[in-house]
């Protein structure tokens, strides 16, 4: 199932990226917050990947080119502001998408209805930090601006229609842009400029083309399972 793989990989890969903050977050409270979000996403990934096949095999034994996640979620954490920028872009998108899937009658409606509450909290968390960093000190403003700019070119791919998701992608995109614009305005930040589609934009993750850091992330994520196949504890 193409869509289960696409949505499941988004959740799995972002979950792993957020998990990388464990032991490195700026404060303990924030570390727990990011780990909570990571675990929510991992739960979603397990349900979605199970719809597509065996969850462990899909997560741990697929090659890079077989992953169908958008390139946005595989981008490295960078500094805390860049992680928040990634969270803001993605969770705003995910909430709008799951709201629509939950209203539908497709196979994802039950999962989406449950997950949308989790995702609403992820988006709220990202918005609060965007406001504080953007409207904070000169340095936090600058870092937030840099994070938003760096990831902007990966946001066009979010609205490439996913086969099997009966969603109006145009209105989804418009709603996303309206929300992002409103948050960034309140945070005294400008909406980044620059291409999000076409030759100069990034994004073919849904076709299995991934960016360089993704291979290293997968190596780390998969090495235990590949070294000890079938191990349990």
């Amino acid at each position: 199932m193409t869509a289960a793989l696409a949505l499941g990989d988004d959740a799995l890969v972002l979950s792993h990226r957020l998990g990388e903050w464990a032991g490195h977050a700026p404060v303990l409270e924030e570390e727990v917050a990011l780990a909570n979000i990571a675990l929510d996403l991992l739960g979603q990934a397990r349900v979605l990947l199970s719809l597509a096949g065996d969850e462990d095999e899909l997560a741990y034994l697929r090659e890079e080119r077989a992953f169908r996640n958008v390139q946005l979620v595989e981008q490295p954490n960078g500094d805390f502001a860049q992680t928040i920028a990634r969270q803001l872009y993605f969770s705003t998108y995910q909430e709008l998408l799951y709201e629509r899937l939950a209203r539908g009658t497709g196979p994802f409606a039950p999962l989406a209805a449950k997950a949308v509450k989790e995702v609403a909290y992820h988006r709220d968390h990202a918005e609060h930090w965007t406001l504080r960093l953007g409207d904070g000190t000169d340095e936090s403003h600058e870092r937030m601006r840099r994070g938003l700019d760096a990831l902007w070119r990966f946001t066009g791919e979010l609205f490439e229609p996913v086969e099997g998701c009966e969603v109006e992608w145009h209105t989804l995109h418009d709603a996303w842009l309206t929300r992002i614009t409103s948050v960034l305005e309140r945070a005294t930040l400008a909406v980044p400029e620059g291409p999000r589609r076409g030759g100069w934009a990034a994004g073919a993750g849904r076709q299995g083309i991934h960016t360089e850091p993704f291979g290293r992330m997968l190596a780390e994520m998969q090495h235990l399972h590949r070294s000890h196949p079938g191990a349990t504890w």
Partner: peptide
């Protein structure tokens, strides 16, 4: 108890730390 920059963030941190 926990550390937070302001009341709104304190509420959110509390949600993550004490109501999981």
């Amino acid at each position: 108890s926990l550390h937070a920059p302001d009341a709104e963030m304190a509420l959110r941190n509390a949600r993550d730390l004490y109501t999981r």
